[in-house]
Design a protein around this nucleic acid. Structure first.
Lengths: 147, 147
DNA sequence: CATGTATTGACAATCATTCTCAATAACTCT
DNA sequence: AGAGTTATTGAGAATGATTGTCAATACATG
């Protein structure tokens, strides 16, 4: 298994504390594990990953919930009635997702014309747009090879 | 309450049958209800909406699952551990979602540069891109007015 | 470093989702 | 159109994900 870091990026810590939340050891551990996973993870998958360090399953759920609320994780529903979470850089919501193995890579935001499009969409719909997501789905190089 | 149609667009019917699924009365009812809802709905919300017509909750779950599989619905995870589904035109996956009332509107696909971007993403990441989603989140006109 | 309070872990409680199975209804073939 | 084959259905049971409870603990602030 790949080594796990224990420290979230200072950005994450700042964001937590800016919202009045405490930066606790369990949270540090969970955030780091989610970030290192580099793919969508369910609560119990993360809990597995953390076995040995005493972090309760309930805390995993609570922390994931918190991260989603702060925009540091993206929640996704899958078949099987289990929610998955993906670590996100604070304002980065552009991904390429492998539909076979689940691996995820972030895309450079500069790439994305969404902000300009947002203006058009506002004019067209009367909405006030706050954010947008752009996600690509397909097969990663490894999964293409396997066939 | 708005009137409910009972017939899915012929497109939907065709897509079901093309995949070897039967076009049954419960499926017709559920698809129409989801389409008419015009927003993300949970299974139980749809079940409520259908009260009076004998459609079992299990069938609602089964049909929503099926629609997601066929690309006729988009599944989303929300706080509260309940999945929501939104009706989608077969290849249309571009929405504007109101974060306050949940209303959803589809955006004209011509709008979206995603297909061209997909090529760049393929070159950059080695992925083979099959599809993409582009969603905008914000407040609809009505919710802006309410403040 | 003492104090006030958010947070935690363990387990119980809840509720969304899936499973099971006999009964029914779609489609196919004639 | 009618009979046969088989997917699909509804109801309720079973499963399992998620949240609630609460005493104990650890973070931040002064």
């Amino acid at each position: 298994m790949a080594q796990l870091t224990t420290t979230p990026a200072t950005d994450d810590a700042a964001r937590l504390q800016a919202h009045g939340y405490r930066l606790t050891e369990p949270r540090r551990t969970i955030i780091a594990a989610l970030r290192d996973a580099g793919r969508f993870c369910t609560a119990s998958q993360l809990y597995e990953r953390l076995h040995g360090r005493t972090v309760g399953l309930a805390s995993v759920y609570r922390t994931l919930e918190l991260l989603a609320e702060l925009g540091l994780a993206e929640r996704r529903a899958e078949t099987g009635g289990e929610a998955s979470f993906l670590y996100c850089s604070p304002r980065q919501h552009h991904h390429v997702v492998c539909t076979s193995c689940g691996a995820v890579r972030e895309i450079d935001t500069a790439f994305c014309p969404g902000d300009e499009l947002a203006h058009d969409v506002e004019r067209q719909t009367g909405f006030t747009i706050a954010r947008h997501t752009l996600d690509f789905y397909g097969l990663c190089a490894a999964c293409q090879a396997v066939g």
